[in-house]
Design a protein around this nucleic acid. Structure first.
Lengths: 199, 199
DNA sequence: GTATAATAAAACTGAACAGTTGGTTTTTAT
DNA sequence: ATAAAAACCAACTGTTCAGTTTTATTATAC
């Protein structure tokens, strides 16, 4: 495949991620993607052979493109294990801001597209091992409560950041709109850190 | 409207909730709903006048049909405020099992259907006031950490239970499949209670 | 028992949509 | 300069789908 072809393919992929994440598999239209990418529809079929194939590719591209925990954040966590919860939460919140397609593609995949999940990248344990080590230290230092597994801890932080973004619309109607201002988020992060910390 | 008509309408609504929650607005087909409800398609238009109208009705029906906190659970919480976190979490987990359409309709609404959100039931503060009181007592008794607002506390528990159900498929691939066994859920509940408790 | 409301059956309309095809032009590697 | 690869253009196929219409049947109220 030539350079131009690779660019076209990537252009299609990038555009399709935007549209699929916005409207879902059934809501997105192939013609719409072609128009948005400013390419000929036929190119889509040349490179991805079907709408479903394109969707699968979008899903795994988004998955692979998101680094769950930054090296800088890792360094910060090692320096100040007492602030671990805050650092992780802030990192996850920033991640969702940086990769706005991530949670949406996750949500779509969980809701509508069973088949495309089969080809997901496998376990991400390696992403977690360093973090798990710092968590272990924080527990031993008495900074975080004992008797809580790393899985539960990280699950909770993922849940908070995911829920915050994915249910924004309904939550601002049913719980509190202030939650979604900058200060609201800061308050949430700060209070979660307090709530989870050992005392 | 006569009795039979009311029944037909409710039958359509109930069936449509099942199908919309399963496939989303764009994924669900009107003919499919008609067939599943064993009624004539034309009845749907007679009672809901459009697919979008039917979806809106489904959404608010599901919302109104879910009582977020049971009276029994409330009584239990008042009796044992030390077990508040566990009681709430277990209640929310059970709620998602009892109303399997709830989180899915929530998710669809947050993803794809802006317009239908306008007609959502307003703030649910009344659902929370009693709970908030018990939370306040638990904090004063030193059972739960101080400096944490009720909103943050309840947000976290909602996040955990929602995330657990809504991201089952991807999480069992990327985090841990054991999390979704009966024991896995019990462990999660128990450890969250410990993690959040004052010590 | 008769009028009226509710429903069924089924065919139809018009638009949208996934995917294809064939012919033409542009770009790129050599 | 030229051949191969890449991309365009645009019409077309077959299907699906939301919504409609017409005619006929069944249930219910009085």
């Amino acid at each position: 495949m030539q350079k131009r072809a690779i660019e076209t393919r990537e252009n299609i992929l990038k555009t399709a991620i935007g549209i699929f994440s916005g409207h879902g598999y059934h809501g997105a239209k192939v013609d719409q993607i072609a128009e948005a990418a400013a390419i000929n529809k036929q190119r889509i079929y040349a490179y991805f052979h079907s709408k479903a194939g394109l969707f699968e590719q979008c899903l795994s591209t988004v998955f692979e493109g998101v680094k769950l925990f930054d090296d800088n954040a890792m360094a910060a966590a090692r320096l100040e294990p007492s602030r671990l919860t805050e650092i992780i939460l802030r990192e996850y919140m920033a991640l969702h801001k940086k990769h706005p397609y991530f949670w949406r593609m996750l949500a779509w995949a969980n809701l509508e597209n069973d088949s495309s999940l089969k080809k997901l990248p496998g376990l991400r344990e390696k992403d977690y091992t360093s973090l798990k080590a710092v968590f272990g230290q924080a527990v031993e230092l008495g900074l975080l409560p004992g008797g809580v597994s790393f899985e539960t801890y990280i699950f909770t932080l993922m849940a908070v950041s995911y829920f915050y973004h994915s249910n924004r619309k309904t939550l601002s109607k049913t719980l509190s709109p202030e939650l979604f201002t900058g200060q609201g988020m800061e308050k949430l992060i700060a209070e979660c850190s307090v709530m989870i910390a050992a005392r």
